[in-house]
């Protein structure tokens, strides 16, 4: 076996096809304002934002072992920062979104130092406490409307683009850009040295520690980056909603429960999982949303069944069945068939 010619690479036929297809799909999506209706664009915009949220949550939970049920802290924080930076700071909304990301990452630093003291599942509830602290604190800020919230002034909305369709196209592109950025950041992070460390930690924390990988630091970086990006997404989300209130901004259902279901159903710990999960989630939502609470019960049941019966989700099932990966992370050994003779 060992003397056979072979090559080790991340690339595969499926991955190359996927790269070409992916580029095509992105081009088609970028052109959506010229082919899609207003309602479709709105739906796709929302889908991209959920895809981005899910990819970031997956980076934390699926790769770094940081299971958070409190990422709504950063969604809400980012949303409020958009309002504060535009209304009081006079920033253009696009810069305010970037600013929200930076501030989100900055506030994640002390938060991480504190809640990283909690292990495993207790860490999860700790993140929820943080989100509650954020919600209650913003409810105290009367300048931003206190408990009842506030709306984005018309002038600021206009500064984005003068026409309504212009604004809609812009927010659509920003959502698309956010999804592409989030997936790219996750992908690049996982391919970097730090990503290798993450995979090692996920596979065996003890062994990784003995190999000299600084587990705490690696997780810390992941948490801060994911939280900063989540805050940017929050700013984008509330730029589309134009209205913010503590309950909407820090909703555990909207920004965490749905995201968790997406990742679990799609396949946790894979880059492709959140993409599949988002598509399934929106398909379910568009067909079952009329059922109201029943829809959420179904979603919960599906997530539990997937977790128990196919813990790697839909994508994990496909990979096991067909051994493909579209965004190559693993190395594979290709023995050259023709050399065997």
């Amino acid at each position: 076996m060992s003397d056979q010619p072979h090559e080790i690479s991340r690339s595969s036929q499926a991955a190359r096809v996927a790269a070409v297809l992916g580029a095509l799909i992105i081009i088609i999506l970028v052109a959506a304002p010229w082919w899609a209706g207003r309602a479709d664009m709105r739906l796709m915009g929302e889908l991209f934002l959920y895809l981005a949220l899910a990819s970031l949550w997956n980076l934390m939970a699926g790769y770094a072992g940081l299971v958070s049920v409190g990422q709504q802290a950063y969604v809400g924080f980012g949303g409020y920062m958009l309002f504060a930076l535009t209304i009081f700071g006079g920033l253009h909304p696009v810069f305010a979104i970037a600013g929200a990301g930076v501030l989100g990452a900055l506030i994640a630093i002390p938060v991480a130092t504190l809640i990283f003291r909690l292990r495993g599942a207790y860490f999860a509830i700790g993140t929820w406490v943080i989100a509650e602290v954020f919600r209650l604190s913003f409810a105290q800020l009367s300048a931003l409307g206190g408990g009842s919230g506030s709306s984005l002034p018309v002038g600021i909305v206009r500064s984005l683009a003068s026409s309504r369709s212009g604004r809609e196209s812009l927010s659509y592109w920003m959502a698309l850009g956010a999804a592409v950025t989030a997936i790219t950041v996750v992908y690049l992070m996982l391919r970097s040295r730090r990503g290798l460390a993450l995979t090692a930690i996920r596979d065996n924390e003890l062994a990784a520690g003995s190999l000299g990988i600084d587990i705490w630091r690696t997780k810390f970086v992941v948490y801060v980056v994911a939280s900063g990006l989540t805050a940017m997404l929050g700013a984008l989300i509330f730029l589309q909603k134009l209205r913010i209130s503590p309950d909407a901004a820090f909703s555990v259902n909207d920004w965490t429960a749905f995201v968790i279901f997406i990742v679990v159903i799609g396949g946790i710990g894979t880059i492709e999982g959140p993409i599949i999960g988002t598509l399934i989630f929106f398909a379910l939502r568009e067909t079952l949303a009329d059922l109201g609470t029943t829809y959420l019960i179904v979603l919960g049941v599906v997530a539990i069944v997937v977790m128990l019966k196919a813990p790697k989700g839909v994508w994990g099932f496909i990979v096991e069945r067909y051994d493909i990966q579209l965004l190559p992370l693993r190395y594979r050994v290709n023995v050259k068939e023709h050399a065997k003779r």
Binding site: G65, A121, V264, I268, A303, M307, L308, P311
Partner: peptide
């Protein structure tokens, strides 16, 4: 694995 009990 802590994920399954948490998520379930």
């Amino acid at each position: 694995d802590i994920l399954p009990p948490l998520l379930v």
